[in-house]
Simulated scan of single mutants.
Amino acid sequence: MISGVCPVLEVPFTAAGEVDGDGFVRVAEHVMGAGVGGVMFPGFASEFPKLDDAERSRLTTLLLRAGHAHGVPVVVSVPDHAAVVAIRRAREAVDAGAAAINILPPHLFAPSPAQVRHHVEAVLDAVAGTPVVLQYAPAQTGTALDAATIRGLAEGHDAGLQVKVEAVPPGPVMSALAAGPRPVGCLVGYAGVQLPDALRRGAVGVQPGCSFVEVYVEIWRLWHAGHAVDAEALHRRLLPYIAYWMQHVELIVQAEKTISYRRGLIADDHCRVPGRPLDGPESADVDRFLEEFSDLLVPPRA
């Protein structure tokens, strides 16, 4: 099962918008060396709707190879809308060595709750024996699932079902999933905006972006070392930045890529269009962020 800090990896592009595979591996290896509990790809932070099938398959292969070399669990996401495609993708990922599968339930064109449940159950059945993370992201996708339905899905998956909770706020959903004779373990997403509350409610992990993962690792370390006051103080320093960036998915994707670029982790901060470029004050905020957290951000390897 996934625990600790498990970031979603970004995909570096060249200035012309082509995938930078070598840059992706460098990002993955840097993140894997930061003390994470796992990594996930592809997610919203990976700009997955802007990747074609060949690019997505290539990057997944590169990531699984890096994860195996570094001993870090890789969670492969299957955000595909059609159940038949999601099943195929999930089986391919498990056969290639994925430690767990992430399911983003179908959400285009408002599928019925029964159809959503059928989709999730079909993927769970296809990867029986492999842990699964179910992504609960109503802010981004809407949702046809509730806590009782998710608990029922978990009871039928012996390998373990966890939930990445990105509700706003996440706390009540996490508490509802923890209720009953078989609690469902939760990771908190949404950039960890509500991470302290999630930790108090028993979150087993956090799944942010990857450009400043060291900050999340330190918050996690402090909390679990018994220094909750220090962990919350560090989170309060982070909160104004992530609360602003999380006003739009494309905004935080661009902000994180710009951070990675200015840190020297990637060669270009290009995001495929449509996107959300930073304006002047937002770009200056990235510089302030890098200065404020310079004590925690490890320089990239030469």
Rank of each mutant, 00 (worst) to 15 (best):
Arg262Leu: 08
Arg88His: 10
Ala255Ile: 02
Pro240Ile: 14
Gly171Cys: 10
Cys210His: 10
Gly185Tyr: 03
Pro113Glu: 11
Asp287Arg: 09
Ala98Pro: 00
Ala148Leu: 14
Gln135Trp: 01
Ala178Asn: 13
Gly160His: 05
His235Thr: 09
Pro111Gly: 11
Arg301Asp: 15
Glu92Cys: 11
Ala231Leu: 05
Tyr241Glu: 05
Leu177Cys: 06
Gly23Asp: 10
Val5Arg: 01
Pro300Ser: 08
Val253Glu: 07
Cys6Pro: 00
Pro138Glu: 02
Leu124Thr: 01
Leu278Trp: 08
Arg288Met: 12
Glu282Tyr: 05
Ala83Val: 12
Ala34Glu: 00
Phe24Gly: 02
Gln194Ser: 12
Asp285Lys: 09
Leu290Gly: 12
Ala191Cys: 10
Gly160Ala: 14
Ser211Asn: 03
Glu29Cys: 09
Arg262Gly: 09
Leu63Thr: 04
Leu63Tyr: 00
Leu59His: 03
Asp95Gln: 12
Pro111Thr: 03
Val94Ile: 13
Ile101Ala: 00
Gly129His: 08
Leu108Cys: 09
Asp158Met: 06
Gly160Tyr: 05
Arg56Tyr: 04
Phe44Gly: 07
Asp279Val: 10
Ser112Phe: 01
Asn102Asp: 11
Gly23Trp: 02
Ala66His: 01
Val213Tyr: 00
Phe289Met: 13
Leu104Trp: 08
Tyr261Val: 02
Pro12Asn: 08
Leu145Glu: 08
Leu222Ala: 11
Phe24Gln: 01
Gly264His: 14
Gln135Ala: 09
Glu218Thr: 06
Gly71Asn: 12
Ala302Leu: 10
Ala16Cys: 02
Ala228His: 11
Glu166Gln: 08
Gly97Tyr: 07
Pro240Glu: 13
Gln247Glu: 14
Gly160Gln: 01
Lys257Asp: 03
Pro208Ile: 02
Trp220Phe: 10
Asp80His: 09
Met246Thr: 14
Gly129Glu: 06
Ala255Asp: 12
Leu278Ile: 10
Asp53Phe: 02
Ala128Glu: 15
Leu145Gly: 12
Asp158Asn: 13
His270Gln: 05
Trp245Ser: 12
Val127His: 01
Phe289Ser: 00
Gln207Glu: 15
Thr141Val: 08
Ala144Thr: 06
Pro138Thr: 02
Phe212Val: 07
Arg58Ile: 02
Val184Glu: 00
Ala191Asp: 10
Ala54Phe: 07
Arg151Met: 11
Ile87Lys: 05
Val286Ile: 15
Ser283Arg: 14
Gln115Trp: 07
His118Arg: 15
Asp197Gln: 15
Pro169Val: 05
Pro12Thr: 04
Val94Arg: 01
Glu10Asn: 11
Phe109Ala: 14
Val85Pro: 03
Arg56Thr: 02
Met40Tyr: 05
Arg272Val: 06
Asp230Cys: 10
Val204Ile: 15
Ile2Ser: 02
Glu291Arg: 15
Pro79Asn: 03
Asp146Arg: 03
Pro106Asp: 03
His118Tyr: 15
Lys50Ser: 11
